[in-house]
Amino acid sequence: MIPWKQLDVAPTPDGKNEVILLRRGQEFSIRVDGQELMNSRMFSSEKVLAKLACNLISHRRGAKVVIGGLGMGFTLASALNHLESDARVIQVELLPAMVQWHDAFLGHLCDHAVTDQRVEIVTQDIIPFLNNGNQYFDAIILDVDNGPEGLTQTGNNNLYNKAGLGMLKGRLAPGGVLAVWSAKDCAPFTQRLKLAGFDPKVHTVSARPNNKGGKHTIWIATAR
């Protein structure tokens, strides 16, 4: 078997670990503290995440979407495929190295989505980005960390608790959509969405395009 080759490494935002980019043949892997966060062979659920969210709002003139978490770009590329030419997508990514890796290594995986004229790249934590602005979005898509559970950055809890969900709802335009990706299901999170004023639908989606391997969970929640 072809061995993994380390392409680059960057510190995590809290400085406690390292984010490592690896390649084996045509396969890429991003890992933190020995845990694989994403793999270029496992992208189906990210594509479905953006498709389900954007299909609900793509008819809106000048639809405005924010995506938290760039990763390998599969979510961004899928969003662009399901939005009209007048849409605007703000891609928020905490780790500057992740954006740089798209220029150097990963861009071909997502048809170089970061260069699309509809896209604005913001290197910032998604929480202060949403808190500090007065922008309103037709869809907020969160492909951050591993979802409501199994976090590698504990600060991301503030996205999924009562206060965080209230903040997210406040940044949605009327009838807006909150879409959340997770490595696994989390029934308490579904309940929190309901209590926060959302009507959530839970989808179980294959991680791989051949429907083999593990399953991921997607919440598509419309604001009441």
Rank of each mutant, 00 (worst) to 15 (best):
D8W: 02
S29L: 12
K47P: 06
I126S: 02
L52I: 04
E84Y: 08
L37T: 14
V92N: 02
L172K: 15
A183W: 10
Q26R: 14
A113P: 07
A139P: 09
G150A: 05
I90F: 04
D185E: 12
A221F: 12
N81M: 06
F137L: 01
N55T: 13
W181L: 00
W4I: 03
S45V: 06
K16G: 06
H82D: 08
N39V: 04
F198Q: 03
G15D: 08
Y160K: 06
K16N: 08
M98P: 08
I220F: 01
A223K: 15
A50I: 05
D185L: 09
Q153A: 08
Q26N: 13
M38I: 10
Q100F: 08
F28W: 03
N39P: 07
P174D: 02
F129C: 00
V202W: 07
I126P: 03
G150K: 04
C186Q: 12
P148V: 06
Q35F: 14
I127C: 01
G214Y: 13
A50F: 06
W219N: 12
G176K: 03
T154Y: 09
L193T: 13
V9F: 03
S58G: 03
Q26G: 09
F137Y: 04
L83P: 13
V32G: 05
D111S: 15
G34T: 14
Q6Y: 10
K5L: 01
L7F: 09
R171A: 03
Q26Y: 12
L21Y: 08
F189D: 07
P174H: 02
D33A: 14
Q117R: 15
P209A: 11
R192W: 02
D14I: 00
P96L: 04
K215D: 07
P200E: 08
T204C: 04
Q124A: 14
I127D: 03
D138F: 10
L165V: 03
L21K: 08
R208V: 10
G73I: 00
F105N: 13
G214T: 15
F189R: 10
I20K: 15
V122Y: 02
M72A: 08
G68T: 05
F189C: 10
P188A: 00
V32M: 10
N134P: 02
N210S: 11
G133P: 00
S78C: 04
D86W: 04
E120Q: 09
P188S: 01
G69T: 11
T123C: 12
I67Y: 02
A63H: 13
R41D: 11
Q117K: 15
W219R: 14
L159Y: 00
M167S: 05
N132W: 00
A139V: 03
D138S: 13
